[in-house]
Design a protein around this nucleic acid. Structure first.
Lengths: 153, 153
DNA sequence: TAAAATAGTTATATAAGTTAACCATTAACA
DNA sequence: TGTTAATGGTTAACTTATATAACTATTTTA
């Protein structure tokens, strides 16, 4: 009983450590990545960070308003509105699904694809340079940890 | 020379793997955390996610408009405006620094502190339950990876 | 002591988000 | 089979979050 208490306490402590470590690390890291993308996207292509994320999801196959709303955790009207802007700018195209005419399929235009190639390619390079400051072992451990996290999302 | 080429290629591949793993894992994880906080903060306290993050930073000692703008990666007027809302709601208090009267110090009120205790405490618990699905080893590896990442931010 | 830098706010405008109400289409079923 | 329910999306009206530019007040510096 006492041993079990200890085990629980021990584990709880480590869990708490991991969670606190998460809060110390990821938000600032994520912010710096977002800042990089934002400046790139705004300066070179005059799109906002939110628009970039929508394009990113569309490119990954979330090709409906509902799917995007789900992915971004926002309402469908919000997505619909942003999609309007992106269509106006010629970055995505809407097309009604002939099999189910309620569906509106969203796809990147040529311009949208090339924008994403540029922004995402540049960002990946930038991140790789950052991560290159880690040792080989640390990089492997990181990849492993990301795999574990992915499992529990 | 050839050996070096190999080493670089090898390392690049692993770096790319880590970066791609990051994009597969971190944004959805972060979104689910944000969704948790958002529903908690909005339902129980009628504050937005952005307001929660400002309170979080104030609690961690970023107690000026400039420091908050820097931390959140947004403009000072944007922070100033949000601070207005939070002051109106009685969650934070402004006070002019007598030693440098340009400075306006921001502090959580009693209400603000207790809100943060509730929201952050609940979120930490929720995250610990999620992380508890990992093995002991995975948790340690995660904590280690977070430490490495923190170093390179 | 005049000019420059710093901290913050106000004004004005746009983007992004909400809920509620709506239209069009498809699915369910009595 | 014809009405009802569910789904996918948009529109309307509103709020919050953000930006830049211009401003006040204060402190630093040359």
């Amino acid at each position: 009983m006492e041993a079990k208490m200890d085990a629980i306490t021990h584990s709880t402590k480590k869990l708490r450590q991991a969670v606190d470590g998460f809060w110390d690390t990821y938000p600032p890291l994520w912010r710096s990545i977002q800042a990089h993308i934002r400046s790139l996207a705004e300066e070179q292509f005059q799109i906002t960070l939110e628009q970039f994320h929508l394009l990113r999801h569309i490119r990954r196959g979330r090709n409906s308003v509902s799917a995007l709303a789900e992915m971004r955790g926002i309402s469908r009207p919000a997505v619909s509105h942003s999609v309007d802007l992106l269509v106006t700018r010629g970055l995505i195209v809407r097309s009604v699904d002939p099999l189910d005419r309620r569906h509106v399929k969203l796809d990147l235009s040529t311009a949208g694809n090339s924008l994403m190639d540029t922004v995402f390619g540049d960002t990946r390079q930038w991140m790789m340079e950052k991560f290159a400051a880690l040792t080989e072992d640390e990089i492997e451990a990181l990849t492993g940890s990301l795999e574990s996290l992915k499992r529990i999302i």
